[in-house]
Design a protein around this nucleic acid. Sequence first.
DNA 1: GTCTATACTTCGATAGAC
DNA 2: GTCTATCGAAGTATAGAC
Lengths: 235, 235
Amino acid sequence: MGRPARVSPDRILAAAALEFAGRGYAGARVDRIARRARVNKAMLYYHFHSKQGLYRALLRQIFSRASERLRAIAASDRPPAEKIDRAIAGIAGFIREHAFFPAIMLREVAEGGAHLDRETLATLAAVPHAVSAIIADGISRKAFRPVHPLAAYFTMLAPLVVYHAGAPIRKELATEHLVDGGALSPDAFVRHVQETMRRALAADASPPRRQRPNRAAGPSSSRVASREESRARIP
Amino acid sequence: MGRPARVSPDRILAAAALEFAGRGYAGARVDRIARRARVNKAMLYYHFHSKQGLYRALLRQIFSRASERLRAIAASDRPPAEKIDRAIAGIAGFIREHAFFPAIMLREVAEGGAHLDRETLATLAAVPHAVSAIIADGISRKAFRPVHPLAAYFTMLAPLVVYHAGAPIRKELATEHLVDGGALSPDAFVRHVQETMRRALAADASPPRRQRPNRAAGPSSSRVASREESRARIP
DNA sequence: GTCTATACTTCGATAGAC
DNA sequence: GTCTATCGAAGTATAGAC
C-alpha cells in the first residue's frame, strides 16, 4: 500500500504517446521521449528494454482501453441503433481524452502492423471485434439490414479517426487560405457520423418505395446477402 | 523529338512511392529508393535535390492525379447521386492503380502536413474540394439533404482509404487467427460505401414516416442547418 | 548525366559508477 | 533505481573524377 508508485513508467508512456503520434515509430526519438517525461534515457531502457518494447507497451495500453469501452457498450442492454450511437460517441469521447490516438492508429494501419507482436495485435483486434458484435447482433434482431459487420465498422470508425487526425493539416490549410475551416465542429461531425450510420444500417421495414428507380421484381432475393452484394454500381 | 526521355526520374518516383508508403517519411531510406529504382544515389540527389524534395514531388504527382480524376467526375453531366457513386468508384479505382496511395495519404494526415510546402498542400486540398463540389451541388439541387460537404467527404473517403491501407494488417491478423478475413472483398466494400452514401445523402422527399420515433412538429426547422446539427445523441 | 568514396550527423543502446 | 559518458551503426548529403 503506498509506495510512491511507478510514476516513471506512466510518465514515459504519456510522453511516448505524444512523440509516436507526432512523428511515427521511425521518426520518434528516444531522447525526446525521455526529456519530455523528465526521465533519464537509461531509465527508459531500464523499464521498457527498447524503443520497440516501449512502442508495444503503449499500443497495448491504448487499444485495451479503447476496446474495453466499446465492449461495455456492446454488453449494455440497449436497442442496437442506440448502441451504435453510443459506440460512435464513445469513440469520439475516447479520442477527446486521448488526442494522440487517431494519429497512432492511422500510422499503425499504414505500417501494416510492423513492430507489433502477437499479443499487441490481439489487443488491437478487440476494437473491430467489439463493434462488429453490436452490428451482428442488430442484424440478427432484424433491427439492421444485413450488411457486412466489418464493412460497417470501417464506415463508422475511419471517418472519426481521419477527421480528428486531420485537424492539424486542416488548420494548416486554413491558415494558408487553401480551404475554409468551414465551421465543422467535432460535435457536429459526431452527429453526422451517427446520422449516417442510422441511415446506413436501418432495416427497410416497408417495401422499397422511392429512392431507387431501377428495381424490377419484389423482394424475392437471396437469403443473407444484402442488396449491396448483388448490385454493382459503376465497376 | 526523341531523346531517351527522362526515365530515371519516373523510376525514382515509382520506387519512392513504395518506400514512403511502406515506411513513412522518416523511415524511408534514400539508399533503398535508389537501389529499387536501379539508380545511383547521387543521381537521385541530382534530380530531386533532397529526400524532402523527392517526397514533395511524389505527393504532388499523386494528389494531382487523384484530384484530376475527381474533378472530371464532378464536371460530368450526371445526377448528383450518380456522381457520388462514380466518385467512390473512382477513388477505389485510383487506389487499385496506385496501391501505395492509401498508406501515403494516412501517413501524411497523421503527420499533419509536415514536410509539405504550400504548393504541395494546394494540390492536396484539391481532393476534398472536388468532392465537396459534388455534394454542395447536390444539396442546392435538392437531390441531397443538407449535410456539411466536408463531413460527407470524410465519411466516404476515409473508409475507402483506411480499408485499403489496412489490408496488410488484416492479413496479419488473419494468419495469426485473431480475426476472420471474413470474405470482405474490395468490390463488396466499394458497394457498401456507395450504398451508405446513397442513404446518408438521400433527401427525405416525403414527410418523415417511420425510422425516427421521436420527432415532434413538422418541417419548421431553420434554413440550411440539417436535422443533424440540432440533435445531440449521447453527448 | 553518372559513378565512387567519404564527410558529417544523429540515433539506439549500454557500460559502469553510485 | 538513477545518472554520465560513450560506443558503434546507420543515415543524409556532397565532393570530385569521368
